[in-house]
Structure formats: structure tokens, C-alpha cells
Simulated scan of single mutants.
Amino acid sequence: MDFTFTEEQEAAAEAAGAVFSGTAPDAVPSPALTTGAVADDIDRGLWRTLADADLLGLVIDPAYGGAGLDPVALCLVLREAGKVLARVPLLETGAAALALQTYADAALREETLPRIGRGELIVTVASAGRTGHDPAELTVEAREEDEGDGADAHWTLDGTHSAVPWAHSADRVLLPAHTRDGSAVLALVPRDHPGVALAEQVSTTGERYAEVRLDAVRLTAREVITDPAAWERLRQLLTIGTCAQALGLGERVLAMTAEYTGTREQFGHPVATFQAVAVQAADRYIDLRAMEATLWQAAWRLGTGAPGALPPAGDVAVAKIWAAEGVRRVVQTAQHLHGGFGADTDYPLHRYHAWAKQLELALGPAAAHEEALGDLLAAHALG
């Protein structure tokens, strides 16, 4: 498979690298040294810079002021974001934009997409449900109601989503819900809408998350996407974006490890020259290359819809398995090779470790995706 990037995709990656070059993960306090979240808000300055560089409209159609690129381009930018632990909802807003562009009606697209591209509208996504283990759409019920007398139909939502990233900073929350017949829908809910309440939560990374509670939240029909494919597509986009962040994080951690072991001496020699150290670093390099290959396979399938032996969900599952296992092994080896220095809160490795754990478990750990892949393979064999 030829994964050569187009000029436009490479330009997006280069622009992202330039934007993120000024971001320093070690400038953020350690979660262990704070009483709550490491910050009350996203990095607004970085968000504005991303908008000025036209990176927020990367996947938005030119008709709405975007660049019209594909999930591969988005993943290239997210890879750069992962290298610096960028505190912005780039993944959530980008995935939401693609979902709205594909499945929302014309009026909602006109209202949201140009503003997303300009950085004026921040959209986050609720994907963990109530516990992070059960299907996320089951935690909120959506009821379509028609009051008659010529009034427009509307939807009423009740339920709770936990661990919603950047919810306090977002303008809208795109969340899955289920109807009485069991169908999945997507609802675009304003954060300050009547009936919406946010409870404070803090993630493994120390970032400010929220439990979003919906009590008889009333939405217009155009704010609810009823296409049953919309939620599955959005979840796949979030998953490959998470894999891209994990890849960038792992690459940065391996580079930090190479730099440290190349200068740290033992018995008069850099520890990088010891065979045991070199073998461990080589194994982690292999992990990263496997993470990269499976990521681009999945992103390409989602972007093109090209046929394969399995549906795109199979490629997404493989990518997430490698990302979850690979990023965990990379940070564990880094901690081991750094010795006690890796636990020093004045050194950024501990923050990369926390983010790696968050990315490993986000949208399902490796075991969950192995089970999903097994089900797909079994269905394929029976078919």
C-alpha cells in the first residue's frame, strides 16, 4: 500500500508543526501538584493561531470556507498536536465538523461549519457515555414529539454523559442518544441550553472535563441527526484521531529517550551504547512504525471508502489495538530508561505518561477492540 501524502496533506502537517513548535508541555503544572485541573480553559492563544493558519477548517468543504481535505490530513495535524500535548479540542471539533458536513441538514451546516473554520465555534463530543464501558448512545434518551396545531416537531433529551473533554470551554456538545426503537441519533446541544448542567471532572491528564446532565432538554428537529450511520462514523473518526495523537506522543517520547540515554553516562560510556538499552529502544521504534502503518490504513479507508477484506471498522480496530498497546509500551520503556529522572515533575515525561494512559483507554482499550475485530472476522467468515 502506497501511503505517500499529497502536497496538500504535507503542507497541513508542516503548518501544524510550525504552529505547535512554540508549545511547551513542561510549562503546564503537574496534576499531582494541583488541587484540581491544571487549567480552567483551553489554550485560547493556540486555538486562535490554529484558526489563523486555516487548520481548524482543514476538513471543511471549500463551500463553507474550509480546505476540503480528508481524515488523513486531520490525523497528520493531530500527530503534531500529540507531540506537544496540545491543550485544544482539535480532535473533537475536527471530527464533529466532518460528521456535521456529512449528515446535518443544509441549514445547520451553513450555521456551524464556517464558524468552526474561523475558530468562532468550539464543538466537543461526548463519547464515553456514563461509564466508558457501555455503548455511549444508551445513556441519553431522545424522544421526538409533535405538539400538533401546526407546531414544528421537536426532540426532548434526558440522560447523562460523563468525561466530556473540554465541555466547559466548548460552545456546543455533539452527543449520541437513543430513541425508543433503539436507533442512535446525534444531537448538537448548546452548552448553556436550558436543562443542561455541567459537573466538574478531572481527567487522567489533569485536564478539566465534565459530566453533562440533560434534563428535558428541548431541541429543534434540525439540531438532531437521525441518520443511523452518523454516530458510528463519528466514533470511528474520533478513534483514528486518538491513534494519531498517540503516535505523535510516542514519537516525541522516544526522541526524548534517545536524547537522554545518549548523554547519560554509566561506567564512562553513554547508556545508549549498552545492548540492553538499544534493544528496548529498537522494540519501541518497531511499535511506532506499526502504529503508523495501521493508522494510515484506517484513515485512508475512512476517507476514501475503498473496498477491503473487512469493513473500515476492522481497520479502525486494528489501528486502535496497536495504538493502545504501543503507546503504553513506549512510555513504560521511557520511564525505565530514564530511571528516577523520569518521575521528576520538573521534567515533562510524567505528563506524557499521563496522556498516554488517557489515550490508551479512550474509546476502548486494546482488549475491547480485539473483541470487536474478532466479531468482524467471525461475521466475515460466516458470510
Results as ranks from 00 to 15, higher is better:
residue 252 R to H: 12
residue 93 T to C: 13
residue 81 A to N: 01
residue 163 A to I: 01
residue 69 L to T: 05
residue 124 T to R: 03
residue 9 Q to R: 14
residue 244 A to D: 08
residue 331 V to C: 01
residue 257 T to R: 00
residue 350 H to C: 03
residue 227 D to W: 10
residue 24 A to P: 07
residue 117 G to D: 04
residue 63 A to R: 11
residue 113 L to N: 06
residue 325 E to M: 14
residue 219 L to W: 00
residue 214 L to N: 04
residue 318 V to E: 02
residue 237 L to Y: 09
residue 222 R to K: 03
residue 58 L to G: 06
residue 223 E to F: 05
residue 338 H to F: 14
residue 95 A to D: 02
residue 87 R to E: 01
residue 360 E to R: 09
residue 104 A to I: 10
residue 190 P to W: 04
residue 61 D to A: 13
residue 51 A to M: 05
residue 257 T to P: 00
residue 142 A to V: 10
residue 373 L to K: 09
residue 382 L to I: 13
residue 311 P to E: 02
residue 106 A to N: 14
residue 165 P to K: 06
residue 121 L to N: 04
residue 96 A to P: 11
residue 69 L to P: 03
residue 271 V to K: 07
residue 206 G to Y: 05
residue 13 A to S: 14
residue 308 G to T: 07
residue 45 G to I: 03
residue 39 A to F: 01
residue 316 V to H: 07
residue 103 Y to A: 08
residue 177 A to E: 06
residue 118 R to F: 00
residue 45 G to E: 12
residue 63 A to W: 01
residue 181 D to E: 15
residue 343 A to Y: 15
residue 78 L to K: 10
residue 208 R to E: 02
residue 240 I to F: 03
residue 306 A to G: 10
residue 100 L to T: 08
residue 14 E to I: 05
residue 229 A to G: 12
residue 309 A to R: 12
residue 98 L to I: 01
residue 331 V to A: 00
residue 50 L to I: 08
residue 322 W to V: 06
residue 226 T to P: 08
residue 141 E to F: 05
residue 271 V to C: 06
residue 74 L to R: 06
residue 30 S to Y: 02
residue 157 L to P: 04
residue 324 A to E: 10
residue 227 D to P: 08
residue 126 A to D: 10
residue 71 P to K: 04
residue 326 G to I: 05
residue 131 T to Q: 13
residue 263 T to L: 11
residue 134 D to F: 10
residue 137 E to W: 14
residue 226 T to M: 04
residue 178 H to V: 13
residue 150 G to E: 08
residue 89 P to N: 07
residue 15 A to N: 06
residue 44 R to W: 15
residue 264 R to S: 12
residue 12 A to Q: 02
residue 130 R to S: 09
residue 237 L to S: 00
residue 14 E to L: 13
residue 203 S to W: 05
residue 194 P to Q: 12
residue 276 A to C: 06
residue 353 H to M: 08
residue 195 G to A: 04
residue 179 T to F: 10
residue 264 R to C: 13
residue 255 A to P: 07
residue 284 R to I: 07
residue 278 A to Q: 15
residue 61 D to W: 02
residue 51 A to Q: 11
residue 381 A to E: 09
residue 327 V to A: 06
residue 377 L to E: 07
residue 304 T to W: 13
residue 52 D to A: 15
residue 107 A to M: 10
residue 48 R to D: 09
residue 263 T to A: 10
residue 270 P to E: 09
residue 61 D to N: 12
residue 360 E to L: 05
residue 42 I to H: 08
residue 56 L to V: 04
residue 275 Q to W: 09
residue 376 L to C: 07
residue 78 L to I: 11
residue 199 A to P: 00
residue 195 G to L: 02
residue 328 R to E: 13
